[in-house]
Each structure stands twice: as C-alpha cells, then as structure tokens.
Amino acid sequence: MRDEDVLVLEEPKLSAAERMYLPQIMTGLRTTLRHMFNLRNRDAVVREYPEQKRELRLDNYRGVHRLNRDPDGRVACVACFMCSTACPADCIHIEAAESPWPDREKYPVKFDIDELRCIYCGMCEEACPVDAIELTPHFELVGTTRAEMIFDKEKLLNIYDQTKDLKPRKNPPITDYGLTGGQDREVARPNAHTTT
C-alpha cells in the first residue's frame, strides 16, 4: 500500500441543531418506536425455536458428523488419517488395523470425534478421499458429560443410519479401490476434485 492511497477523512462538522442533540435523539426514538410497533416485521423474522425450526440447507449445513456405510453396510472409511491430519481442532482420533475385507488395506477399529472440540469447519469432509465422513444438518447435540460428547465409530455410523434418507451421500460410494481390478476411481467419482 502506498502513502497516496491512504485517504484521511475529516470528521464532519456538526450543525447547531446537531450540537443540541435533541433533534437527533428524536430521530433515533422514531426508529426504535417504529421497530417496537412493527408486529408484521417481527412475526416475519422471529422463529419460536423448539416448536418452529429453521429450514436448513441439507446439502451444505455443517452439523454433527457421520461415518458413511458402503452398500454392503460396512464402514466406508479406509483409515487413511487424511481427516485427522486436516482437522484444525485436532478432534479426530483414529486407530487403524488391517482390513478383514479383500477390497481395502485398512479399516478403522476406533474412530472417535470429540464433538466439543470440533469447530464444525468441514475440513474433514473436504479431505476424505472416499467420502466416508460427512457433516449432517443435525445440530442439536446434547450431553451431560464430556465423555458422552466423544462420539465413537458406532455412534457416528448410527447417525448415518438416521440421516441417510434426509441427506443421501453426495457421491456414489466407491466399491472397489483398485485392489480387485474394478472401476477406475475417477470414473466412479464424477464430482471428485482434481488435485494438482
């Protein structure tokens, strides 16, 4: 930035009426009174929350996480640690093990997300190469202890079961990871980001 780009503004001089303040206060009172008695505007804006809920955008609202299942009902995660690496709040804890299934190398034995640490930025969803972790539009998270708010694999899979009708998986699931010579990955994911 150059010096000549800086614009120094003088404070506007107040007129005599403005220095008396009273006319300005009257203007302000008119505004507050208008809002006070504008019932129509209030009714249009206010939602009585627990009874009336906002209509959230299902496709991109960032609520609680879920772990997707593949068509066979198995956890879709391949325990690549991309999400826990991308996580700025450091709230994803994964323990990987060798996969019992022939189509992938690893799977998570443990997959814990600390929902109290999470900042719901959605970086994990961006990072996931197999679209296994996704954020759902469900935001009413309640717990009475901290331990209760650490969601494990079962709970996250359970959220998938509850929300899969509300919000289907974004991309078709990857069924074959190139291990058994199936479809090419780029073909299976038409919306996948191309990385450089």
Binding site: M36, F37, N38, R42, V46, E48
Partner: peptide
C-alpha cells in the same frame, strides 16, 4: 420485553 421489541425479537415468552 421492550428490549426485545425494539430489536425485532419477542422478549421472554
């Protein structure tokens, strides 16, 4: 209540 009304809210209800 008045605080609510002025700010287009409903206040305690």
């Amino acid at each position: 209540k008045i605080a609510g009304f002025v700010q287009d809210r409903r206040g305690p209800n």
